[in-house]
């Protein structure tokens, strides 16, 4: 698969201004902008990085350039959410979709390991799509806990937080210049452990209708807080109540910004 992607990228580089993908050198692996003439044999597919964020950054800086990106299922979902929020211009983007393997899907508990390329004007899929992996068993286990036990669980988890803001910084759909989490009005500065419920619940609330379940916040967390248990539950809620799955549908806008006519919610109060 990797050779196929490398060939495709070097062919597309003739027409594009560059392709965002991971490059492996002696130093390590990180996202880079491959341009024509670059050594595509350095292009690799592991580990994961929030490339949607990189694409957005580059598109904003180079306003006329057309870039490509090598994207997994989670990356394309993040790209869709970023397009909806006007952070990415889909017409200036070409996508090499990479279908994750069964093993990769299992490590991420990924429900949709194959990138959905239908919404994109220009895209190619490489690799054979595999079915979704079963969800994180911790979520089901968690749902059986009583309220007191849940409180205790998160109390223990959130006291480990060292307030590094890594969960926000790595998140492929977090982009605001002014962040509530840095506003002293909402999150008291200089407090370690950060205030519960402020820091974590504001973050979680901002992830509703937006979290694409890439789980990168969890890998970036130095304290090992299982954030995605919380985010998976919210995703489920948003799916059940509003019928919205972040990253899945390019045509429906962010439901929290829409009226009840455009994005109804299953609630007595909505009548």
């Amino acid at each position: 698969m990797i050779q196929e992607i490398r060939d495709l990228v070097s062919e597309k580089l003739k027409k594009l201004d560059g392709v965002v993908a991971l490059r492996k050198t002696d130093q390590g692996t990180a996202p880079t902008l491959f341009q024509e003439g670059d050594d595509v044999s350095q292009l690799v597919l592991e580990p994961r990085y929030p490339v949607a964020k990189t694409v957005s950054k580059l598109q904003k800086r180079f306003k006329d350039a057309k870039f490509g990106v090598v994207a997994r299922g989670c990356d394309t979902r993040a790209l869709v959410e970023m397009v909806k929020r006007h952070q990415i211009d889909p017409d200036r983007l070409y996508i090499v979709g990479m279908a994750c393997s069964e093993e990769q899907a299992e490590t991420c508990y990924c429900a949709e390991p194959a990138p959905d390329l239908d919404p994109w004007p220009e895209a190619d899929l490489v690799g054979d799509p595999v079915p979704g992996a079963p969800p994180n068993p911790m979520v089901a286990e968690y749902e059986n806990l009583s309220r007191e036990e849940r409180w205790d669980f998160w109390n223990q988890q959130f006291t480990k937080c060292i307030k590094c803001y890594g969960c926000r910084d790595i998140c492929p759909v977090c982009f605001c210049d002014a962040c509530s989490l840095e506003d002293p009005l909402w999150v008291e500065p200089g407090l370690l452990v950060p205030d519960f419920p402020m820091y974590h619940l504001i973050k979680a609330m901002h992830m509703t209708t937006r979290c694409v379940a890439c789980r990168q916040c969890e890998t970036a967390c130095p304290a090992g807080i299982p954030l995605t248990v919380l985010y998976d539950l919210i995703r489920k809620d948003v799916g059940n109540l509003i019928g919205y799955i972040p990253g899945a549908d390019a045509d429906s806008g962010p439901p929290l910004s829409l009226t009840l006519a455009d994005a109804p919610i299953d609630s007595e109060l909505a009548k």
């Binding site: 849940r150 669980f153 979680a204 919210i234 109540l241 439901p255 929290l256």
Partner: peptide, 14 residues
């Protein structure tokens, strides 16, 4: 929508 989701979120964190 916002308050409904926040109510659920509060429940999830105990």
């Amino acid at each position: 929508k916002r308050v409904t989701l926040l109510q659920n979120l509060l429940g999830y964190t105990g």
